[in-house]
Amino acid sequence: MFTGIVQGLAKVLRVTHQENFMQLELDLPEAYSQNLQQGASIAVNGTCLTVTGFNDSSVSFDLIEQTLQTTNLGQLRCGDQVNFERAARIGDEIGGHLLSGHIHAQAEVVAIEKTTNNCTVWFDVPPAWQAYIFDKGFIALDGCSLTVKACQKNRFCVGLIPETLAVTRFGFIHQGDLINLEIDSHTQAVVDSVERYLANRSENNH
């Protein structure tokens, strides 16, 4: 599990593509590369990946077809920067909200509105996931736990504070970029339960 509090940026050192498969190597900051283990979980742009190798200066992962199809990791190139968060431990402070690291879809950046101290980013959300996004609800974008600021039809926006812009890749995103989206699991459970209840009730009344 993860908390949605991104710990920093990691540089892509190597990307190796094969058929429906990719190997990814990152330069993880020294402060977060201690006590790594084979098989440990690290969220990369919000995607839970398993450590397949590591040394004093890098950490490696294998990405399979499903991950490449669902997330933005398949678009990475050497020199890119990604958000990372190591798995939460029992007793850690949950500053955001609990995340599984299982990405549901990609949301396209459709507008970025900046003022001196504020930044609002608008996203186009796939229709299948619109029902789970609402004002003041939780959302995870590239692994960042964020609060939905507003919704408009098939779009929603979040407000980003200067700290988020400084320590995550949101500081240099552009219109048209695809961002990994993870729906809040509790919201999904409630919405799906209510929809099933209403559907069953409708069937029983006919």
Score class of each variant (00 low, 15 high):
51 V>S: 03
29 P>D: 10
55 N>L: 02
67 T>H: 05
85 E>H: 02
68 L>P: 12
68 L>F: 10
88 A>L: 13
79 G>K: 09
86 R>F: 08
18 Q>K: 13
75 Q>R: 13
31 A>E: 13
51 V>F: 07
71 T>F: 14
32 Y>C: 07
17 H>L: 12
77 R>T: 09
37 Q>H: 07
26 L>I: 02
35 N>V: 06
19 E>F: 02
32 Y>N: 13
22 M>N: 04
17 H>V: 04
66 Q>R: 06
51 V>R: 01
58 S>T: 06
29 P>E: 10
58 S>H: 13
27 D>G: 10
57 S>N: 14
36 L>S: 04
39 G>L: 11
52 T>E: 08
68 L>M: 07
17 H>E: 13
48 C>G: 02
57 S>A: 10
23 Q>K: 14
42 I>P: 02
80 D>H: 12
48 C>M: 07
69 Q>R: 15
70 T>D: 01
47 T>E: 11
62 D>I: 09
72 N>C: 05
58 S>D: 02
77 R>V: 07
72 N>H: 05
46 G>N: 06
41 S>K: 05
27 D>P: 00
42 I>A: 11
65 E>T: 08
88 A>I: 01
52 T>A: 13
30 E>V: 04
54 F>W: 13
46 G>K: 02
16 T>F: 01
71 T>E: 12
57 S>M: 02
40 A>H: 04
47 T>I: 09
20 N>T: 01
36 L>D: 06
54 F>S: 01
78 C>N: 15
51 V>P: 01
74 G>I: 01
51 V>I: 10
55 N>G: 00
88 A>D: 03
65 E>P: 00
